[in-house]
Design a protein around this nucleic acid. Structure first.
Ligand SMILES: [Zn+2]
Ligand SMILES: [Zn+2]
Ligand SMILES: [Zn+2]
Ligand SMILES: [Zn+2]
Lengths: 132, 132
DNA sequence: TATATTAATGTTATATTATTACACAGTGTT
DNA sequence: AACACTGTGTAATAATATAACATTAATATA
C-alpha cells in the first residue's frame, strides 16, 4: 500500500474542488473558484497542484492543461497513467486496465532504455457522442 | 501509402528548422529563429505548426510543449504516437514499435469506447544519463 | 475567362498558462 | 540557538497560445 499524505490547507481546498468536479479543471478556473476561500494568486494554485500531482492525488491531462482527481485508490499509478478523452464533449476518464499497465510497465524500446513513468492519452468519441 | 503534402513557404521554413534540430523545439524558439526569414508573429508559427502536426510531418510533445519532426516515413502514425523522454537531458526519441502500436491500436476499455488516436510518452533516463 | 471557394498570410492585440524572486512562518532536528 | 525543510503570501513577469480582422494566393467549377 501507500502512505497517506496529510494535505495542507491550500492543498485540501484545491483537491476538494478537483475531486468533486465531473470534469478536468484548469489552473485559472481553480483559482477563480477558490478565491473566496482565501487563495488569491496563481502561484498558490500551482504549488498545490504540483504537490498533489507528485503524491498521486491528481493527474495532469497534458493535452488539455487540466487536472483530474485520481480514483484508482489514490494512486498507486501516479507514474503510470492512462486516460480516454472524448474529442467532442471533452469527457475524460482514467483508464484502469491491468493488462495495459502490465504491457506498458514491461515495454522496452530498442535501446533497452527502461522507463520509470509513462502517460498515455487516447482520443476518440465517448459512447454518448458516438451515437448522435 | 500516404499523400505527399506540398508545404507552403512558412510551413517549409518551419519544418526545415524542426527537421534539422536534434531536439524538440518550442514555438517561441522557432519564432526567434525564423524572424530573419520574414516570419514575424507567433500566429504565423502556430498556424504552420498546426498544419504540420495535422499532416503528420511533425509531432507535439505534449508534456514539453515542443515539436519534433517525424521520422517514421512521414508519418503514417500521426494519430498513433509514442515517445521516450529523458528526464535529465530532455532527449526525445520517437518510438517505432510494431508490437506497441498494434497493442494500442487494438486496445479497448471497459466501455467499449473505440479510439481514433493516442499519444504515449515514456519518461526515464536515456542510456547516456543512466550511466553516469 | 470569370467567379466562387478555400487555404494561407500579415498584423495587432489579447488571452491563457506558468514561473521567478523575495519575505516570512511553522515544524522538527541538532 | 542554529539549521534545514516545507509551506505560505505577494508582486511581477515570462512563456504559451488564440481572437479578430484585413488581405492575398491557390483551387475549383461554371
Ligand atoms: Zn490515477
Ligand atoms: Zn463525448
Ligand atoms: Zn511520427
Ligand atoms: Zn539523457
Amino acid at each position: 500500500m501507500h502512505k497517506e499524505h496529510i494535505l495542507t490547507k491550500n492543498q485540501q481546498i484545491i483537491f476538494d474542488l478537483i475531486d468533486k468536479s465531473p470534469e478536468p479543471l484548469k489552473a485559472y478556473s481553480i483559482l477563480f473558484n477558490v478565491q473566496k476561500r482565501g487563495i488569491k494568486a496563481p502561484l498558490q494554485v500551482y504549488r498545490a497542484l504540483d504537490k498533489l500531482v507528485e503524491i498521486g492525488k491528481i493527474h495532469k491531462i497534458e493535452s488539455r492543461n487540466a487536472f483530474i482527481a485520481c480514483h484508482n485508490s489514490s494512486c498507486q499509478v501516479a507514474k503510470a497513467t492512462a486516460f480516454s478523452i472524448c474529442e467532442i464533449c471533452e469527457k475524460v476518464t482514467e483508464i484502469s486496465s491491468a493488462g495495459l499497465s502490465k504491457y506498458l510497465a514491461n515495454f522496452k524500446d530498442k535501446d533497452g532504455m527502461k522507463y520509470s513513468k509513462y502517460n498515455l492519452e487516447f482520443f476518440g468519441l465517448c459512447k454518448k457522442c458516438n451515437t448522435r
